[in-house]
């Protein structure tokens, strides 16, 4: 998905992990995904650069669909779909 498409995406759950460092965003995502039903979309906000690589890897391991990343000025928004 393009950055524009992602930005217009309506997430079922938004996890704000901004300000936390590794493994904070990952742990926050793990905790929050339990509240998302299958087929639902989750958005992870992070200011930690490494999360951009970590979330796709996490999705791969957990069998979630990684949809992409949209960059804002001081943070990133990562989108994924629970299978």
């Amino acid at each position: 998905m393009t950055s524009e498409e992602l930005k217009n995406l309506k997430a079922d759950k938004i996890v704000d992990a901004r300000g936390t460092a590794c493994p904070g965003p990952l742990l926050a995502a793990k905790k929050a995904i339990a509240e998302v039903s299958s087929g639902g979309i989750m958005e992870v906000l992070s200011s930690d650069e490494g999360t951009k690589n970590d979330i796709p890897k996490w999705c791969q391991k957990m069998n979630y669909d990684y949809l992409g990343v949209a960059e804002e000025d001081s943070y990133i928004r990562l989108f994924l779909k629970k299978a």
Partner: peptide, 11 residues
């Protein structure tokens, strides 16, 4: 401990 907690996040 970072590796351990990260690993549990990955089930």
């Amino acid at each position: 401990m970072i590796i351990s907690t990260g690993a549990t996040a990955m089930d």
